[in-house]
Structures are given as structure tokens and as C-alpha cells.
Design a protein around this nucleic acid. Sequence first.
DNA 1: CAGAAACTGTTTATCGAATACGCAGTTTCG
DNA 2: CGAAACTGCGTATTCGATAAACAGTTTCTG
Lengths: 241, 241
Amino acid sequence: MAGSREKKRDPKASLALLWGEQEQPRRGPKPSLTAGRIVAAAIEIADTEGMDAVSMQRIAAELDVTTMALYRYVPGKAELIDLMVDSALGTPATTDGIPDDWRSRLTDWARQCWAKYRRHPWILTATAMRRQLMGPNQLAWLDAALAALSRTGLPAAQQHDAFLLIVGHIRTLAQQSAAADEAGEEEWNRLEADVLERHGHRYPALTAAITAGAFAPQQGDPLDFGLERILDGIAALADRA
Amino acid sequence: MAGSREKKRDPKASLALLWGEQEQPRRGPKPSLTAGRIVAAAIEIADTEGMDAVSMQRIAAELDVTTMALYRYVPGKAELIDLMVDSALGTPATTDGIPDDWRSRLTDWARQCWAKYRRHPWILTATAMRRQLMGPNQLAWLDAALAALSRTGLPAAQQHDAFLLIVGHIRTLAQQSAAADEAGEEEWNRLEADVLERHGHRYPALTAAITAGAFAPQQGDPLDFGLERILDGIAALADRA
DNA sequence: CAGAAACTGTTTATCGAATACGCAGTTTCG
DNA sequence: CGAAACTGCGTATTCGATAAACAGTTTCTG
């Protein structure tokens, strides 16, 4: 959470890198790296130690070069993060074997997307509060979701809204699960329980919910509840039309 | 997006501050500040210039003290952020005049919450990927939502799930709107349009959706679509039971 | 009331991070 | 061959968070 010592993001450069629209150098020493290797190293670090551990110095160390060497391949950290996200998302799997109705397709899509977020929780931070720069992979995910949604017969604008709704749900889960994985979870729970012991009377509904086990760990995929509700809601709308 | 030069968050200290469980000093000079004033200054900065502008030095400057003076009142930046969030959320308004059914109550709740996120978009970043430390206000919001949800008759665990679903939707909108407010929005759109011009054929559903106006600016409250779907989905479930 | 004790704001010093700049060596083209 | 286009790298700058130590201020205590 330290300050932003960086220059602004250069979307043009990010896009060029995302789409591989870089001219190959014709002279000079052979590059010892590629943007791809840098991105892969950064993702590796983010996966294992979280986004906070991703620094230019750290990536460089991982690749056995000096920090500044990286800047020959990516314009800056902001652009690197754009690349990380698109790369980590990868391509959605084919829909082979999935029934050809919108609900099955969307469910499958959501499961896959959720899997990606679980594998790379840092995607959440990496994309929070920033305009998304759609790379090839991100566009593929969007396309897949819209392909399913188009079968609902809903107006295009609502298809987009529905897409956001589902992504939002997945991101909420990612947030929850990232928070739960934080260190010292037990201590935190104990502290909060303590607080509620002392102030719980001010929160009757909450107290009742806790007593009823609303916050007990659940079994089953946390994705399901919300996804079912959303799809039910969309179905109701689609049927109405 | 710079590194984390801070020590870990101290939840105990945050909670003590959140609940005002601090012992008042009995000796020494009169304190010239309070945690509250620091938090207010930080929120002011975040509101007008975004979270990135919130640095200890900046807050101190705003309050006409040295940076280190702040550390007499808050243990560190992480704890300060906890306080900022709870303070910015404030208390949910009373439900006077809102019909006493769960759907109306939840709709009202969601609108209020969405208003808070719109006023303080940085809450999104401030709470991303971190375990939430529930302060008095955050608990009040949670309590209010659960009070409404309890009238659905759903099991407690599902009430919690439903709560997350709604908050998730609100946060998605906040994310969207924050991204849209970023500088250079037009240039970005132009660049993306360019890309699609060149690669659009790989994304038929997306191309179709764009043509159909899926991404055109919409009128009306963006909250509504998703909220209606979610509530419809919840209603369907509640009716079934 | 004299210290001691508990505080306060401040100064100074580290350390981590991003990244601008310029240098020396490497390749390739005219 | 020599300039041009590159590459990796050492150096320096700037910001941010925060630790440590210091000097002045109040309030107790004996």
C-alpha cells in the first residue's frame, strides 16, 4: 500500500505487447529475455507470495538480471500488470460436452472463471479500480460469456449487465477467499467475537444470524448459491419477454 | 502500486480505535490531534484525489503537523485505512417510510450502500484483498441487511450468501464507475475500438453485442438491473420453501 | 515542591520501490 | 569498417512508511 512512484500507464504500449504487435529488433545483442518470460516470472511470484511481493527488483532477481534490464522489455510496472492479468486468465476451455442452453453454458463459464480467480487471487487487486485493458484472453472470456447470454434473447445492454453481475459475484468470492486465507485468521475471528460479546446488543439481526450459524464455514462450492440466484433472476426476466 | 513498506496490520489496535476503547492520557501536553481528525483528513484526500494520494506525509501536511506526529494517534497506515472505511460508511439511514417487506428493505439498503460507494469509491481499494475489520458502522450495515433478509425465511447461511451477493453487485458497479472516471477514457475507448477493428473477427459474440449497443452508455441507475435479478432469484428461492 | 513518569511533536535516519540516465559492449547494415 | 540500433547494467533520484532518539510539557507522588 505504498505510494505510486510510477508514471501513468501507457495503454498503447500495453496493447502492443498484449497483441504481440512489437517490431522485432534487427540489430544489437540477442535479447536475453522476453516480455513473456518476465510476465511468467511475475505471475509465479504473485501466485505464491501475493501481489505485494511483486516488485521489479524481485522479478529481476528471479530472472537473474538487474532490475533495469526489465525496462528493455516492458515500459513499466503498470503495463506489466496488464500483461499479467491477461496471461493468467488464459483462454476459456472449449464448451465440448456442455449442453447447448444458455444456463448450462453460463454455469460452465462461471465455474471456469472462478477457477482462474482461485488460482490467481491477485487478479482481483491487479484489476481493482483500473480501467480494464482487454487483451486477447480477456476478450475471449468476454466473448464466451456473451455467446451464452445471447441465447437468452435479452437485449444486448442487459446481456452486458448480466455479464457484469456474474463476474461481480465471482470477484466477491475471490475477495472472500483471499481474505480468509490471510494469516492469523483465528486470532481475527477471536477478536471480532470479543467485540460482539461486548457490543452485540446493538446488532440484533446480526446476533441472531450468528447464533443461527450464518457465518459458520459451509461445505459445497461457494459459487453455487449466488450463481443459481443470478441465473434464476435472469431466467425469470428472459421468460417474461 | 509500490511495495509494502509497512509492518503488518494490528487488528487489536484497529479495533480499539474503532470502538473508542482507548485510555485517555492523563499526563503530558494536550494532544493537538485526534485519530478522528486524522481519519477525516485522510478521507477528504481520498475523496478528492483518490487513494493513491493518501500518504502519511500528505495527511500530515493537511493537518499542519509533521508526518511522525500522526503515529502518536494511529499505529500505522493499515490501521488508518481500517478507520477510514468504517468512518466513510457511516450509519445506514433509518428505514422510516420504507414498506416493511424484505424486498423493499433490501432495495433501500442497496441504494444507500451504493450511494456510499459512489461518494467514496476508494472504499473498494481500501477493502480489496483484506480481511474486513468490522467497526461499529460496518456492523450496522451488516445488521441492517440481515434484518431485511431474515424476513425471507431463508436459512441463516443463505441470508449471509445473499448479503454477499448484493454487496458484490454494488462493488462491481463501484469498480465500473471508478474505471470509467479514470482520465483519458476517450483515448482508451478509441484504442480498444482500434484493436477490435483488427481482431474482432475472433470474437463474434462480442462483435455482435457491440453492434447491438451492449456497451453504449445507459440511462437509469446501473444498480437496478442486477439488483432486480438478484432479488428475483432470492424471491424464487424463498417462495419455493 | 522536586523529581519521576507519561506524554507530545519533531528531527534524523533507514529501507524498499519505481524508474530516469548514461555508459560500454554487441550486432548488423550500408 | 564505422555508424546505428540494441542490450544489460551501474548510478542516482524521489517518495513513502516508519523506527529511534530527543527535547519540551503536564501530572503525579513522595
